[in-house]
Structure formats: structure tokens, C-alpha cells
Design a protein around this nucleic acid. Sequence first.
DNA 1: TCCGATTTGTGCGTATGTATA
DNA 2: CTATACATACGCACAAATCGG
Lengths: 255, 255
Amino acid sequence: MGGPRFEPVRAVRAYERVVEQIEEAIESGALSPGERLPSERELMVQLAVGRSTVREALRVLQARGLVRSRPGDPHGAEVLPFSPAALHKSMTTLARVEQLSLGELVQFRMVLDSAAILLAARLRTEEQLAEMNKAVEAMRAAAGTEPGAADTEAFGRADVAFHDAVVAASGNKLIQICTDVVRQIVLRQISARIDAADDRQALMRRSIQHHEEVIEAIRAGDGPLAARLSRRAMYDYYAPYVKESETSALRALLE
Amino acid sequence: MGGPRFEPVRAVRAYERVVEQIEEAIESGALSPGERLPSERELMVQLAVGRSTVREALRVLQARGLVRSRPGDPHGAEVLPFSPAALHKSMTTLARVEQLSLGELVQFRMVLDSAAILLAARLRTEEQLAEMNKAVEAMRAAAGTEPGAADTEAFGRADVAFHDAVVAASGNKLIQICTDVVRQIVLRQISARIDAADDRQALMRRSIQHHEEVIEAIRAGDGPLAARLSRRAMYDYYAPYVKESETSALRALLE
DNA sequence: TCCGATTTGTGCGTATGTATA
DNA sequence: CTATACATACGCACAAATCGG
């Protein structure tokens, strides 16, 4: 015991070395978004590997969202600004193969969103508070006053804008990206059912009221209250779509 | 307005179609972990594409952690059980290119971990509570009684076991995976500094005491208290490594 | 134990369509 | 509009690795 612990030597493929080199260059900042990689033939020469090896490496980097290459582009592959697309992809895969339930996803959002709101109540600036108010204003406009005049799509966009303003105020980019990713996954699962609801406009009005209450708590600096309100609002909004057996786990977050 | 909405036709590459087909087969469950894909040459025939195309597709699937192929394996690529490796990879990339600070990462863990503990206090079984106790027992053993007899590695493993038991009791796999991924990223950033601390054993003792308090609160079913204690414990443990300017955002989570 | 069939890893040449100067 | 350079895709060849008999 305590002797040297040997690990099996994994045969590292040529294309992996290529991936590592380019990845390191990008993540270290030696290559910035917008800059171009050498052409495939040039890389082939510089790295002393075959064309297929270069191409397989570029595919992997493309799958990770780090570069993009287009046919005929004389400048070579383009280094992309970071996008959570790869994160989104792996979470979506996770949701499918691990059979993540809607309840788990909503629970995750309740946790992260309310945390963001708790932080936002402490750290927000006046400008950010104005952003939130503007978003709720847009929600009101989208919900309309005449029956049947609701613009579901605009309402959704305004809702996203509100949450973006909140997570921006929270100052935590990781929370921002994760809530965004999970929100999209949840919406993909139930957007059809939401669109089909015949009391959409009533749902919107309730949602707007909840948002107004949350904003008021944020304005007053009462983070715990704002967080509690937001969890309640999300529960009310999503619980109808969650399996009966899972709602108790959601309610556990409501105190 | 309201006319047919045309979308730009994205030139979809051959290898992408291949990726989509195989991905769909795996995520839908038509192919289960352990099963094999046809060999590259067989796929080439079935899909009516060249071998390079098949290979590029397999690389992408491999990068996403869905399959693994080894040279010479006569059975073709193996379908893998889900692993959060791809998620881990994209979060690590995120942390590097977006320059996620240690403060943000720790804050994220405080949020998710305390949520898991809040849920665990409500939902845990006696077996899971016993698991947690066992883990803390292992932490005590690793910390040792004699000065200088601490086994840092064993302590870390026991700590992980504790948190695994907690998130398992919370019943939310998404929280489990995310906390696990972020924990590894945080550790990678500061493990050297933790190892170098000359008061390691004292830190371990405090950590053990915190864990005992959390377990007691979980046993008593007081979720909010357990969550508060865990946030405090994590703050105490990691705050020394977080930049001065960021600790206030962390303290915002302590009430 | 060894050997041979099969497969993957890799390199290279070619044809084709495309984007840019 | 043309020329050039490029990515895409195909197919073959060879080496190395794996597995079954």
C-alpha cells in the first residue's frame, strides 16, 4: 500500500494530439474569436499528419463549438466566440439518455433561478432594475388587453429578457448559462402543451403579477422574499405539467 | 404577415446526417450501452458514404461520449453508458474561455449543494442517512488522531462519498451531475494550494464538525438549517482562496 | 501459444462544388 | 467573369492492433 500507482497508458491518437494543440491555443487566448486557423493543407504540413487526421480533429473541435469551417472559405476554419451550444447539447443528451424527468428539470430551475434572484436583490444596479421593469412591460404588451390578442411568442421573449436581466444582475455567468440551457430543454418538452392551453391569457396575467411581485421584492432588497416568490411562481406555472408523483419534491422547495 | 415562414436551408454535411442517425438510435434506446455499431466498412455500405465520412461522424460521437472505438476491434464501435464527461469538458472549456472565477464556481456549488441538502432533509431514507454517517466516519479515520497522520486523499474521497449520498437522497440526478462536475473543476484550480496548507489537519477537523452538524440537521428533518450550515461550511472552506472582491457575493448566500 | 483474418488508424491522390479576390 | 484556393467527399493502400481458432 502506498506504492507507486501506475495507470494504464492510453494509446493517444494522432488526431487527439491535434485537437489538444489547437484547443490549447484557443483556450489560452493565443487564438481569439474571429481569427482563422491555417488551412487544412497548411495544418497538415505544420503538424506533420495526413489530411484525414486534420479533418477528424477539426470535426471534434467543431462539435465542441470552438471552430467553424465552411467549404470554399479561403481563410481556413474560424475560431468562434464561446457559445453554450456544446453545454446545451450534452445536457440535452443527458436529459434523454438518463431520462431526466420534467420534475427534475423544473426543480433545477427553481433552485438556480431563485438563487439568481436572491443575489440580484443584493447586487442589482438601478439600470438592471430598469431592465427588469422594461421586460415586464413588454410582457404586459404581449399579453394584450383584448381577449385573444395575446402574442405568445413575444411574451416568451419578454420572459426570457426578464430572466436574463436577473441573472446578469446576479453576477454569476455559470448560473446564467445553466438556467438558459435548462429553460430551453424544459420548453422543448412542454411548449406544445402550453400553446394548446385555452387559458393562455389568464396564465400570462398571473405570470405578470408574479413577476411584478418579484421585482418589488428585489427593489426593496428583500432577497429571501423575492426568491420565495419566484419559486412559487415557477411552481404554479409548471406544476400542471409535472407528474403527480413528483410535485411533492417540488413543493419541498416552497417551504 | 402570417404567410409561410421560410427558413434558410443550412447545407447539412454528410457526416452530420450520419451523426444524427446514430445519435437518434442511441438516445432513443434502439442501441443500448454495450452493444456494438457495425464496422466502419459496414456503415459505409449501409449509409452509402465514404469511409472518411463515417470516421468523421464516429469522431464526433466519440467526442460526445456516446461511443468508443478501438483499433483492431472486430466488433465495431461500442455504445457507451452515459457519462458526464462531455458535460465536464464543455463546462471546463466554459470556465477557461469565459474566465469563470473561483468565486463564481464556489457560489454555484453553494447554491446547488445546499439545495440538494434541503431536499435530502425531506426525502432521505434511513439507508441514505447511514451512508452519510459512514462517509463522515471515513473522514474521521482519514484525518487521523496523531499529528501529521492525515491522509488527504482518503479524506477527499470520503468527502465526495458524503456529498454523493446527499445528492442521491435529493433524488435529482441533474443536481448530482452538475455539482460533481463543478467540484472537480474547483478542485483542479486549488488542490495544489490545499495540499500546501500547513494546517490541513485543523481544516479537516473543522470540516468534519461541519458535516456532523449538517447530518444532525438532516436527521432532524430541518432542511433550511441543514442548507444554511452547508453554505456556511463551504464558505469557510473555500473563502480563503477566493479573491477579496468576490467574497461579498458569497456572503450574500449566508443570509 | 501462435497465426491469420478482420478492423481501425493514418496517409494520400482525386473529383467536385464553393467562396473570395 | 475568371482564376485561385479552399472544404467536402470518395476510395485506396499500408501499418498496427485485436480477436478467434
